[in-house]
Simulated scan of single mutants.
Amino acid sequence: MRHFLTDFTEYLQIEKNASPYTVRFYVDDLEDFFAFLEEEQISSLEDVNQRIIRVYLTRLYKRKLGRRSVSRKISSLKSFYRFLERHEQVTANPFIYVSLPKTTHPIPGFLYTEELEKLFSVSDLNDPLGQRNQALLEIFYATGIRVSECQNVKLGHIDFTIGTMFVNGKGNKERYLPFGHFAETALEHYINDGREKLLEKTTSSPDAVFLNARGGPLTARGMRMILNKMVENAAMTVHVHPHKLRHTFATHMLNEGADLRTLQELLGHENLSSTQIYTHVTKDHLREVYMDSHPRAKE
C-alpha cells in the first residue's frame, strides 16, 4: 500500500502539478484509510468492497467529522483508486458509486466600504512598516490575491507601466492581475522608500516585494499578523484575514457590474462553480439595482 501511495504522490506532483498543500491533504486522507484497513486486517486494496466502505464511513461519522471533511476523503479515495485502475493495480474502483455527502456552502464574509476606509487610514505612511502595511492592504483589496501568492510576488513580477502583477497561483497556474491607482501609489511609495530602508537591516538582497522588520521576506503568517494589528489599531471588532479581503474584492467587483467569467480569471479559479459563491449581494445593493432597472419600480 505504501508503494502505491508513493507512486500516486509522484503522479499528483508531476502529472497533475498539484500544490504541496493539495498533495498533503491527499496523503493524509489515504494514510487515514490505510490505518483503517490495518485495523480491519485487510492487506490488499483489491479486497475493499461496498461493505468495508460502509464500515469506514460509519467510523468517520463516529469521529464527528463534518460533511465537508468526509466528502473530501471520499473524493481522495476515488481519485486514488482511479489511478490504481488505470495502472492495472486493481480491477475496479469500489468508490465509484459512493455518493458525496451534500455540503453547505456558507456565504463568504466580506467588508463594507466604510470598514475598509477605517483600515486604509490607520498606517503611518512616513514609517517604512506603515508604508509596507498600506501597500499590502491595497494589493490584497485591488487584486483579490491569495496570501500564498502574495508572499511569492517578486520585484520583477510588477510592471508599473501597464499596472499589472504576475502571479503564480494554485497548481502553478500563471496569471496577470491588474491593479489601480491607489494600489500603484502605495506600492511605489513603499518600494522606493520603505522597502529600501528595511533592506538596510539585512546583508542579503531578497527579491520578495514584501519584507519583514528585519529585511527578510514576509511570510503568510506575518501578513495575517499585520492585518490583525491594523484591525486593532482601527478599533474594529470584525475579524479580518487575507482571504476575507479576497472575498471583499470579489463581492465588490460583482456589485459594481463585473461578469463572472472575468472574475473567475482574476481569482484564478479553475471552475466557474468556485466563483459563483460570490454572486450574493447586499440587500441594499439588490434593492438599488431593482429600483434603477425595473420599469415600474418608480413613479
Rank of each mutant, 00 (worst) to 15 (best):
E15W: 07
A18S: 15
A18G: 04
S19I: 03
Y21D: 11
V23P: 03
V23C: 04
D28F: 11
L30I: 15
E40K: 13
Q41I: 00
Q41P: 00
N49R: 02
R54D: 12
R54L: 14
V55A: 10
L60K: 03
K62R: 15
K62I: 00
L65R: 03
G66R: 14
R67W: 04
R67E: 15
S69A: 15
V70G: 09
Y81D: 01
R82C: 00
R82L: 04
F83M: 06
F83K: 03
R86I: 05
R86H: 13
H87C: 00
Q89W: 12
V90D: 05
L100E: 08
K102H: 12
T103K: 14
T104S: 13
H105T: 14
P106N: 11
P108N: 09
F110H: 14
Y112I: 09
E114C: 00
E115Q: 15
E117D: 15
Q131N: 00
Q131D: 07
L137I: 00
E149Q: 01
C150T: 04
G156E: 13
D159A: 06
F160E: 04
T161Q: 12
G163A: 03
T164K: 12
V167K: 01
E174Q: 15
E174W: 08
L177M: 11
L187S: 03
E188D: 11
H189W: 03
Y190R: 09
Y190I: 10
Y190M: 09
I191G: 05
D193G: 08
R195D: 03
L199D: 03
L199A: 09
L199I: 09
T202R: 10
S204C: 01
A208R: 05
A208M: 08
T219R: 11
I226M: 11
L227Q: 05
K229D: 09
K229I: 05
E232G: 04
N233E: 14
A235Y: 09
A235I: 01
A235D: 15
V238R: 13
V240R: 06
H243T: 13
H243Y: 12
H243L: 13
K244D: 08
F249D: 13
H252P: 08
N255M: 15
D259S: 09
D259P: 06
L260P: 02
T262P: 04
G268D: 02
G268S: 07
H269L: 00
N271W: 00
L272T: 12
S273H: 14
S274D: 07
T275P: 04
T275L: 02
Y278A: 05
D284A: 11
V289R: 01
S293Q: 00
S293A: 15
H294V: 07
P295G: 12
P295Y: 09
E299C: 00
